[in-house]
Amino acid sequence: MRALTVRPMSSHSLEAREVAEPLPADGELLVEGLAIGVCGTDKEIVAGQYGWVPPGQERLILGHESLGRVCRAPSGSGFKAGDLVAGVVRRPDPEPCGACARGEFDMCRNGRYTERGIKERDGYGSQLWTVETDYAVGVDPRLEDVGVLVEPASVVAKAWEQVERVGGRSWFDPRRVLVTGAGPIGLLAALLGVRRGLEVHVMDRVTSGPKPGLVTDLGAEYHSEDVEQVTAAICPDVVIEATGAGSVVFGAMAGTAPYGVVCLTGVSSRGRTLTVDAGSVNRELVLENDAVIGSVNANTRHYREGADALAKADRTWLERMITRRVGLDHATEAFNAREDDIKVVISLG
């Protein structure tokens, strides 16, 4: 079979090549890989900036945003041949910390977790893959064209869970949410905000292409002004930050309503400096009882919540998020950014 492989920490090593077919162990599904999504983490791995091979291997099979069709399932697993599934990315460390031991492996405290397609475990970017039944999540059969969005939807489901848990430290009745960034995470964050009955605003620097229309058709309001202008106009109770841009991060932190919650989901690049009035930021955070939290990755319940949210969404709207599809033999094209890209998907067939 063919798989998309890379040599981590080595640029220009991306290659679709023949690899041995996997043999499912007891309690594992055998899955036909249909598609993988490409995100910033994948681009960092392909650029030689990130990633770890499985022990004893020279190459890593890429792909953590997955969609596949079950070929064979263990009896009593709850899955059957033909089911669509997505695979959970992270696994708890072998000597679990307190969080991993309680099933909260997305919040691992000691860093010894592993991740499919990223850290010491082959990913889902192959024509066949296996996954433990406990780490497989069923996908609605109507989502065959967009089910690869389950992983980013799981990240957003966790972010919203964290916001609501932090807000729940006292009376919390948010009305307005600002999402900064209209990429896949931002758009899905807006989707889940609209589903919560909130007044949703999305900020992104582009003024053309598919993003403004996607936001408007969701029932949210699109903004392209600076973050300070947007927060001054709407005074958000919640901010889901999905750009990782330092100026946007600090602008959002300074612009919430009292008792505001800012959830950072975008990862900033190293080596960039920014002049910040730290005293003012500290003063506003303290005097207004604001909270700033980081959120990344997801565990199994977040995947199920993400899959459920996609199943209830307008499929035509979801399809518009996937702006480009390429075949496995042309996978390198998926890593060359185009102006109107939102989500790029690699088909594995």
Rank of each mutant, 00 (worst) to 15 (best):
S77P: 11
D106E: 13
R301T: 07
R338G: 09
P8G: 09
E161M: 00
E95Q: 14
I61D: 02
A20P: 01
R196N: 03
G33L: 00
V292E: 13
S154C: 07
E333G: 10
I118S: 12
Q57P: 02
S66L: 00
L34Q: 05
L143A: 12
I346V: 09
E151Y: 12
C263H: 12
V194C: 09
G219F: 12
R315K: 04
T114G: 04
G51S: 14
G183C: 07
L188T: 15
G123F: 09
E28L: 06
A136H: 04
M253N: 11
T265E: 10
I45F: 12
E288F: 08
V202Q: 00
A257I: 00
Q127P: 06
G82E: 06
G260R: 07
G78F: 10
G181R: 08
T216R: 14
W129L: 02
M203L: 15
R304G: 00
G183H: 09
V227L: 15
C97W: 04
V166Q: 03
A313K: 00
R205S: 08
A25G: 12
G271T: 06
I185G: 13
E333A: 15
G279M: 14
D83M: 07
V46P: 02
V85C: 02
K43M: 15
P92S: 04
L143F: 07
V326T: 03
V326I: 01
V238A: 08
F79R: 07
D290L: 10
R112G: 15
G306T: 08
V155A: 07
T316W: 05
A254Y: 03
G37P: 01
L67W: 00
H302Q: 01
P8W: 04
P152I: 15
V179S: 08
T256L: 02
I36H: 03
D173S: 10
L128T: 00
P210T: 11
R142Y: 09
V238D: 06
S66Q: 03
P258R: 00
G37S: 05
L285P: 06
G27S: 11
D340Q: 09
Y124G: 02
G183W: 03
M107L: 10
W52N: 05
D290C: 14
L214G: 11
N297S: 14
N289V: 10
S347V: 02
A252V: 08
F105E: 08
S208M: 08
A232E: 08
S13C: 12
Y222S: 09
E104M: 03
N289R: 13
G181H: 10
D173A: 12
R283G: 01
T41Q: 11
A245M: 14
A337W: 14
Y113P: 07
L318K: 02
G213A: 10
P210D: 02
M9I: 09
E144K: 13
C71Y: 03
A136I: 00
M253L: 15
R165T: 05
E32V: 05
T207K: 14
M321E: 04
G117A: 00
C263N: 12
R304A: 11
G279T: 15
S269T: 12
G27I: 12
N336E: 13
L191M: 15
S154V: 02
S247C: 06
T300Q: 04
G147Y: 05
L62C: 10
A257V: 00
V248M: 03
R165S: 13
A99I: 05
V146Y: 11
W171D: 11
V155S: 12
R165V: 07
R102C: 14
V276E: 01
E288D: 04
P96W: 13
